[in-house]
Amino acid sequence: MDDPLVIAGREYSSRLITGTGGATNLEVLERALVASGTELTTVSIRRVDAAGGTGVLDVLRRNGIDPLPNTAACRTAAEAVLTAHLAREALHTDWVKLEVVADDRTLLPDPVELLDAARTLVDDGFTVLPYTNDDPVLALRLEEVGCAAVMPLGSPIGTGLGIRNPHNIELIVARSRVPVVLDAGIGTASDAALAMELGCDAVLLATAVTRAGDPVRMATAMRHAVRAGRLASGAERVPKRFWAQASSPPR
């Protein structure tokens, strides 16, 4: 495999991790997932009688996509830990996208509860991928307790505001010894490419594709953007200059 994404020893050829929320129906979701080329996709854990499709696992299975259960909507470490244990039981995976959010308006991670839950779940044998703030110190703390990756936000979930603090993302990348996945806030393809150019190892997005006017087309765009950004980040870009520099020989 050429230039694989490696998380906790598992290799993926795609550096695009997708979510499944927001799609109008499973048929559109499936076509978008296939177009994106993703090999790892998040699902939520909810009451069996709750509204919302339960056929999503079948979609993932028949396309060879690994499920990544999340703890979306959990507000406390205790809730998130129980949800992760239920997800492990239901899906037979010890991987979890750990989400502990502070409130509904911002959906920002609660750093205290998040770190607490991460520590517990690592001790319980989980492969923990935490959705975190773009805070370089918190990212280090999450790595120290044994998280398999860190997943800083570009901007709040579902906003499509892109990467509001690129330098923080660069700081996280510069010191992290685990993969960095830009998670949340991606609005369009250039945001995904920027994440990769900043040195992120992968991008996780859902809304940007599932709520786009043409989800399949946007999924295709994201696939290429992540690939382009990855190539550019390894290509040693030219320095930025104040004045012009001719690219043609003098007359």
Binding site: G19, T20, G21, A23, L26, L29, T42, V43, S44, I45, R46, R47, V48, A50, G52, G53, T54, V56, L57, P67, P69, N70, A72, L82, T83, H85, L86, A87, E89, A90, L91, K97, E99, A206
Partner: peptide, 27 residues
Amino acid sequence: VVPRVRWASTTVPDGAVLEVLTAVQGG
């Protein structure tokens, strides 16, 4: 959590509160 392998051997006490969950679209 009650693991599936223990469903048949675990008795539910009166007044118990159960949550039954599965994977759905989300996140």
